[in-house]
Design a protein around this nucleic acid. Sequence first.
DNA 1: AAGGACACCAACCGCTTTCCA
DNA 2: ATGGAAAGCGGTTGGTGTCCT
Length: 254
Amino acid sequence: MEKIKETKAQSKRGLWKPEEDLILKNYVETHGEGNWGTVSKRSGLMRGGKSCRLRWKNYLRPNIKRGGMSQEEEDLIIRMHKLLGNRWSLIAGRLPGRTDNEVKNYWNTHLNKKNLLGKRKTIDSNKQHIDNEDNIEKQDRRKPSQPHKSQSIFSTSPERTTDEGLMDLDEKKQQVKEESSFTDGTWMEGAVQCFNYDYDYDIDMIGTPLMMMNPDYSNFVFDEGPFTSYMDSFVLFEAFGTDSDHVGIQSFLP
DNA sequence: AAGGACACCAACCGCTTTCCA
DNA sequence: ATGGAAAGCGGTTGGTGTCCT
């Protein structure tokens, strides 16, 4: 414990200076990545290993892309997030040159507010909804040249009725399809393309079960699904069962 | 011009997972 | 099988710049 305190106290914190970047870059290029704990000692940087690792990973690594996200990247993030939730490293893995930290920040600052704005109102979230709207308005005043490019993705969800349980399956499928459509009218296409996977999906195979796993949330996530850990190497997943109350997902590994 | 409010984003924190002796 | 170190990850914080009043 004392050792930890000592190390923390000795570690320099805050923004990295260009000369520190240079030292770290030279060190890693000479000695390779890894053993970050020893990097600070050997390189002379008074930084913690974690800090060095993060700095390298997020900024100094070759092929890191800096600057604003393109429209394509933004769309991909939205689609991937719809599919994976806050799995930033997985999402970033599909955006060459982008880091999980960057994707996360971009989501939280640019995309999440649009998402919240589009969420349907509930009794408790009413105030939040209004607050978000207010924030967007303020942002618009500040940056009138930046339109909300993807806002329509999240603003099309209809109010969900309380007698939803009585809806027949076809009706439910249609609603699911409408709620999860992207701006271009495709459904899950982006997610499928993300995995370089050309598959003739249909709503029965993928959409309905997924949405039913979390029927109250149009921006669905994979909650604790055992298959999610295979997403990155994912080749095929398939729903089995047609009973709306007992559907599941089965994953197939390569 | 000055100060407050806000957005952005780099960096940090703490927990979890993986690796290895 | 186990424990410690390293790495990975997502959430959060805090500094800085910009805009508004």
